[in-house]
């Protein structure tokens, strides 16, 4: 198992993505992609469904990425990655890493069936879901992971009424080799978790909370700040699940020692998408976070 802890000094200077890609300014995904590729290295094959990553990787005939990448249909990411892995096995090229990289809509909604099946079959690849909490690439429509109250272009007046789907927990319930959650605000933690994931055989799932200035309604410069707020207020937790055991990791592990966490209000107020959220909802959300952390302290503290 990999024990290396990544820091800005030992992080490779080699870049695997060309400058001048098509990501929006302040995009959480572009940070993740750049750092993620540093962890994965060149001996990788990407499988990508429609998502912001499709656009970011470039429009034909120009590509921002230096890694071979297969663009596939929306629902088929994990199945296509299975096919790539099967071909590599048949051709004796098993050392090449297969990485499926999709958004939250592509994972929690249309892609969940093929992903669930791939985990059940015990496939050997890494699935990364960057969760910016809506269909951003099509212009900010609600997805299964959009939180309650959030404005999207198809919840334009009332905000999303339902709560979000807890995707990493659903994936962990399939008992894959490894599940981890990350935040784009903590890219080195992501780097470490990728290193760990690729050292393991079997299905690995990494879920990343990914701030999106255009979709969340915030200044581009606040992408990392807002991402950190979500983690430090205990809303989005960074953890790993191995052999059915969940362990808080990175900045979330440090929160265990604290008796109280910052209130969630600051995170919500930083984003215009939450302008329709009622006081009542905020209180309810805060109570949920508090109860969750109380449970964590009892179980892991």
């Amino acid at each position: 198992m990999n024990k290396q802890v990544t820091n800005p000094v030992n992080l490779t200077a080699e870049e695997f993505i060309y400058p001048g890609n098509r990501a929006c300014s302040g995009c959480g995904l572009s940070t993740l992609y750049r750092i993620g590729l540093k962890a994965l290295g060149r001996d990788s094959i990407f499988v990508v469904p429609p998502s912001c990553l499709t656009v970011m990787q470039g429009l034909y005939p120009i590509a921002a990425t230096q890694i071979p990448s297969l663009n596939v249909t929306f629902a088929s990411t994990a199945a296509a990655a299975t096919g790539v892995r099967a071909a590599l096995k048949a051709r004796g090229k098993e050392n090449i890493k297969v990485v499926a990289w999709a958004g939250d809509g592509g994972t929690s909604d249309i892609g969940i069936q093929s992903l669930s099946a791939a985990i059940e079959r015990g496939e050997d690849f890494l699935y990364i879901c960057y969760d910016n909490e809506a269909y951003m690439n099509t212009g900010v429509q609600r997805s299964g992971t959009t939180p309650r109250g959030a404005y999207t272009t198809n919840t334009p007046i009332k905000g999303k009424i339902q709560k979000n789907k807890d995707l990493p927990t659903i994936m962990a319930a399939h008992n894959p080799t490894y599940v981890a959650t990350c935040s784009a605000a903590y890219p080195l933690d992501f780097h470490n978790k990728i290193l760990k994931a690729i050292s393991l055989k079997g299905m690995k799932y990494i879920h990343i909370h990914t701030p999106c200035p255009s979709g969340w309604g915030m200044e581009e410069r606040l992408s990392i700040t807002v991402g950190k707020m979500a983690v430090n207020a205990g809303l989005f937790d960074l953890y790993e699940v191995e052999n059915g055991k969940k362990t808080l990791s990175g900045p979330s592990a440090k929160l265990l020692k604290r008796e109280t966490l910052p209130r969630i209000d600051e995170y919500l107020k930083a984003q215009s998408r939450f302008r329709m959220l009622t006081e009542e909802h905020v209180t309810e959300l805060q109570a949920e976070i508090d109860a969750k952390w109380e449970k964590y302290r009892q179980e892991m503290g």
Partner: peptide, 27 residues
């Protein structure tokens, strides 16, 4: 001598073949 993938749907069946052929296998 082949990999047999027992997929969960026909959509995935052809997706596996698409992935496999894109990575150089006869599918």
């Amino acid at each position: 001598k082949a990999e047999y993938i027992t997929v969960e749907s026909e959509h995935s069946a052809l997706a596996v073949c698409i992935g496999a052929a894109s990575a150089g296998a006869r599918a």
